[in-house]
Design a protein around this nucleic acid. Structure first.
Lengths: 105, 105
DNA sequence: ACGTAATACATCATATCACGAGGTATTATA
DNA sequence: TATAATACCTCGTGATATGATGTATTACGT
């Protein structure tokens, strides 16, 4: 998908990926990739941004002798998802406008 | 709507606004605004970009003693709209992923 | 034993783009 | 005689997706 179109949906996608269960970077990529291409550099940039915005909190857990960083969604993060759903309704309106201009082909 | 979410849809929206009938800046704003907020600075930036990308061509017409700039969509522009429709299908998939993670609230 | 892939984290520079602020000019209206 | 509406345009700023790059361990095939 076009990079521009991804903006504004990628961060919500990451939040959705940790909504029901805390997760970590590598797993998030595996979970989201089938729906939306997501590179490591993009993901870690997003995770940092979401943490700064207090939409998630982190916790480091030892796994196989190494630290694995788990991400946990906050109420702010949950609210962001709900906000997105409202925004998506507007997106649908715009989509209909684009298609409407298409009727008399 | 969030500025980031607009990316990737704004330019297609402008193309859709001139698809059936050549139009000019001021009119495009009036036509698109009810569906998607669009300022003059944003529009003229987009129009310039679309012209550079050969998705539209321009033509200046005298109107009330002043030049009014009309925009006409090209085949490239029409193709861009079709491409967007395909991309929007992917957007729907992502939206479903986001909502799916929401079932067991 | 040795390379390659997978797991797992992170940073930086670059390019793209929406938008506010600012600018110019004419016509209509209150 | 202002003020709004019509109509055009540019510039700087901030947000952000992504490739390139780096570090380190474990698993696996040959």
């Amino acid at each position: 998908m076009d990079a521009q179109l991804k903006r504004g949906i990628l961060d919500v996608c990451v939040l959705a990926a940790i909504k029901n269960e805390d997760s970590y970077g590598y797993k998030i990529i595996k979970d989201v990739s089938p729906f939306l291409e997501l590179s490591e550099s993009t993901l870690y940039t997003i995770l940092k941004r979401l943490e700064e915005a207090k939409m998630l909190v982190t916790r480091s857990v030892e796994h196989n002798g190494r630290l694995r960083k788990y991400y946990h969604i906050t109420n702010n993060g949950l609210a962001r998802i709900e906000e997105f759903k409202e925004e998506f309704k507007e997106m649908m309106t715009v989509y209909k406008f684009i298609c409407k201009e298409d009727i008399d082909d």
